[in-house]
Nucleic acid binder design. Structure first.
Lengths: 206, 206, 206, 206
DNA sequence: AATGAATGAGGGTTCATTCAT
DNA sequence: CATGAATGAACCCTCATTCAT
């Protein structure tokens, strides 16, 4: 019944701490989170936390880096390797990805990025290089494929692939802020947008 | 309506402080801003600041409340009083409003709302009641008018007027974060989106 | 009877704090002294201390700089302006200065310098420039005057004026360390040394 | 006297640690030295270090005790067993000892003693009993022998044998502090002092 | 009304020491 | 014996807030 006060679990610690930190940052924001709290959440002493992360900022960066990125990696390789037509891909895997994001903790990360980003330019840079620009390229590839296929006509989407993901951001931010005041059905919202985009760029006949 | 020629004596003190606070919060975020700095920026002593605002949080709320809202009020009354057709209004006043926002300090307010909102639910509530829901209603009115006019067909936009403003938020957040890494032409981006929406909902012929 | 919690005494604060800090550092050394304690000793809040001294190190430097130096300044100007013969000066004012030092708080400063000096090279440099090298020059002047007068013969003291002050340092360090174990009569010890030196350099007859 | 050829297997662990600790303390002082660092320097784990030394303070005392003392032991027995005249001894072995000290790590120990001594009275006591008072006695013996021999006249040195070692301390402290700012030739400085002392106490003629 | 000196709770970080492995 | 992961008490410093002037 006596739980040992010491537990050596070197392997798992960083992930556990990172997990706990995400939860804490999500609730209180960066400044509002006390390192003590993160440690407590992780079931760990403050000292140990500092063994794995040199500073609170370090911890924050580790949190940001370790989430979201895998998800996007999956989407990207999916785009590259799929055998679906462009429209099928958009209606299938892309839509699934798009609608899942606002329900995931990614939402929280977006908040943190927006809130704290300006103070951590290197973090933004890392994100741009490793996540955003790659995702953008993948989207461009997908759209170009549709155009080359004759599925899509040439459109502003060629230049602004962001037009496709606009409602994802919006949903995340909207629910983050106004959840108690409204209940946006993000799935249908995003679907409607995608439908609208497809409607606008699909080659209609013949 | 006659503007008093001499003013700015005293007693727009609160406004001056609020102004200074916006600048400070914009630069450093809420937690990163020291009350001292705000006072210095406003050319006022710390003590005086506390005469007008009971706490730092109070000051923050005053800042948030005093900006953005007038702008939206204008848009709303514009919608209500315009004699333009729905499409003309979207292409005209709405687009102008939409493209101007990402260049204005509103961007910063959005950041502050996202960053600090969760800690200030009453602020969010105030915003919802006084700004967001009213703006949403106005948009709905506008769209409904278009449908009633026979300009627009029935569409998801009826339920989700947000589909129209999606790229405004996106532009603001995007430039906030990735300004140094990319240069999104927000004007053309937003125009492209609006065009796409109109393309999708306009009754095409006959 | 109720003492006001706040007391505005801007002028006196730095000196009071510096005073308290000397006492604290003397008792516990630099590392062993808590800023809190210094504040308490000075009857002041920790925060106020940081208003006047940016860091603990800053405070330490201020303490070191503000003591000892005036004492030596006096000796130096004394040497420059005296009308006594060299021997008279040594037996009179110099001896008085020399014997008083080991009983003064200077002892403590010497300890602090020795203990902490290596970590604060700029402090050492300041001391060298403002105190030590000037004192050395003054001593050299004094001895040279004696030689020029025909009071003293040429000797190693010309090159090493430090030979005169050797027992001062020794007395300070010795009592610092071994006070409880021995009772060196520093006055007579230093006198004996000075006598010995004079005996050795005085031109004896004719 | 036969030195065992193979050694250094294990179990001069304590000595190795003590060695490493001296180096560390010398560089950073007591408070500035991390136990971790000492362990690393000694090529040993922190846990093992704590096997040999119960606390950091313990380690510190061990360091202090293990150095300097052997050197002085040698001098003392030298004084007791020598067949040289008092003057010859002073000019020979004593001077050699005196000039070598300021160049040795003893200097560092002196610093540590001065800096940390007041916090470790038992260490001081140990030093007094085992090193200082014995050294003092030996010096007294030497001087008395000179007087009894008719080499020296009666003088203050009889009461204050410290007058002989004054410049040793001085040289150590001086170089410790002002090394970069001056270059005292400690050998010649100490020689000059000794010469002066002898000059003063030697029976001059017949 | 206006100032800014003064307060003190609170948070990030370090590091001597312990103990499971 | 040996390791180094884990603990937690301290300590420096900041800053929102108060109040004597």
């Amino acid at each position: 019944m006596a739980e040992p006060r010491f537990q050596r679990r070197k392997e798992d610690r960083p992930a556990e701490i990172t997990q706990a930190a995400l939860a804490a940052f999500a609730e209180k924001g960066y400044a509002g989170t006390r390192v003590d709290d993160v440690a407590k959440r992780a079931g760990v002493s403050k000292g140990l936390l500092y063994l794995y992360f040199k500073t609170k900022e370090d911890l924050f960066k580790a949190v940001i880096r370790s989430f979201l990125s895998p998800r996007i990696d999956a989407l990207i390789s999916n785009i590259e390797e799929t055998e679906l037509s462009a429209e099928e891909f958009v209606r299938g895997p892309f839509l699934e990805f798009a609608t899942s994001l606002p329900k995931s903790p990614a939402k929280i990360l977006v908040r943190l990025m927006i809130a704290e980003g300006p103070k951590h330019p290197d973090l933004i840079a890392w994100y741009w290089d490793n996540v955003v620009s790659r995702a953008l390229d993948a989207l461009r590839t997908l759209i170009k494929r549709g155009v080359d296929n004759g599925e899509f006509r040439k459109s502003a989407l060629d230049e602004f692939p962001q037009l496709l993901i606009t409602p994802i951001f919006f949903s995340m931010v909207w629910t983050l802020l106004f959840q108690p005041h409204t209940d946006l059905d993000t799935d249908r919202f995003i679907e409607a947008h995608v439908e609208m985009v497809l409607d606008s760029i699909k080659v209609k006949y013949q």
